[in-house]
């Protein structure tokens, strides 16, 4: 019997996330791409503050301990000093879009040649489900107990669109995790983003709409349904920008 699908070897131990959390899938997709692109022994991962900061024990790769939101700055330096290494910033939406807005945008603005993968689960997961800039109108969180009031806090942020239309970067896409087909498409986006980095074309970013059953107070399957019904209409899927390869 030949093995046809197997978790990448660099994911040496199980990820520590809640049942149904999208982190486990996205991390696997990234590591599959890293392996397929031949970067298993030449990759630095920047982890955020948030649920993904628990990743250290699972991955046998260099993981830089990013500060809340500041990976855009730190990974800028890492990539400039190690231009041949695949540098991946793995961040949640709270990390990359709220507290790290300036660093995320400025790294994209400078067209730093690393890849950002953001997990958009419409709340601050690790701290217990507070409102994020991605929280949907009316969504109840622990800091928007009556539902998000966009009059008071603005509309959910679309960072990939901002980056795609504002800056001279290489690649921007948004994927989701609700069906095997969408998961495979998301992997395709991540691979193209990493390829753009590998080719030295420029900054690349993939946002993934990801379920957070725990803080959404739903079953994992209900969470997948919510992404289809509620998030995708607001956060369109697909490539937002692709400058193409060399």
């Amino acid at each position: 019997m030949a093995v046809v699908k197997k978790v990448p070897e660099k994911i040496a131990r199980q990820v520590p996330f809640c049942p149904g959390c999208g982190h486990g899938i996205v991390v696997r997709l990234i590591m599959e791409c890293v392996e397929e692109l031949g970067y298993n022994d030449n990759v630095i991962f920047g982890k955020p503050v948030g649920c993904a900061s628990l990743l250290d024990n699972s991955l046998d790769i260099d993981i830089f301990t990013g500060a809340h939101g500041r990976n855009g700055a730190s990974l800028t330096a890492i990539k400039r000093l190690k231009p041949d290494t695949l540098v991946i910033s793995y961040q949640g939406d709270g990390d990359a879009y709220n507290i790290g807005f300036a660093e995320t945008m400025n790294a994209a603005y400078r067209n730093e040649k690393f890849t950002v993968v953001t997990i958009n689960n419409t709340n601050f997961g690790m701290t217990g489900g507070q409102m994020a800039w991605t929280t949907m109108p009316g969504q109840k969180t622990t800091t928007s107990v009556n539902g998000r009031d966009v009059e008071l806090s603005g509309l959910p942020i679309k960072m990939p669109e901002m980056i795609a239309t504002s800056f001279d970067t290489a690649y921007v896409a948004r994927g989701a995790l609700f069906t095997p087909a969408e998961i495979n498409k998301t992997k395709g986006y991540i691979k193209k983003a990493l390829q753009a980095q590998s080719d030295g074309i420029g900054h690349s970013m993939v946002e993934v709409l990801s379920p957070c059953p725990t803080n959404w107070h739903m079953s994992p399957l209900e969470a997948q349904e919510r992404i289809i019904k509620e998030l995708v209409p607001y956060y369109p899927l697909g490539e937002l920008k692709n400058k193409g390869g060399k």
């Binding site: 500041r70 855009g72 700055a73 990974l75 800028t76 330096a77 890492i78 400039r80 000093l81 300036a102």
Partner: peptide
């Protein structure tokens, strides 16, 4: 050598942090 004009002092320090992580004199 590498030189980066950062977006802020905060950004600059986190660049330093990243740079140190790969073992550079920064």
């Amino acid at each position: 050598r590498q030189y980066i004009q950062a977006e802020s002092e905060l950004g600059a320090m986190y660049m330093v942090y990243g740079a140190a992580s790969v073992g550079s004199r920064v």
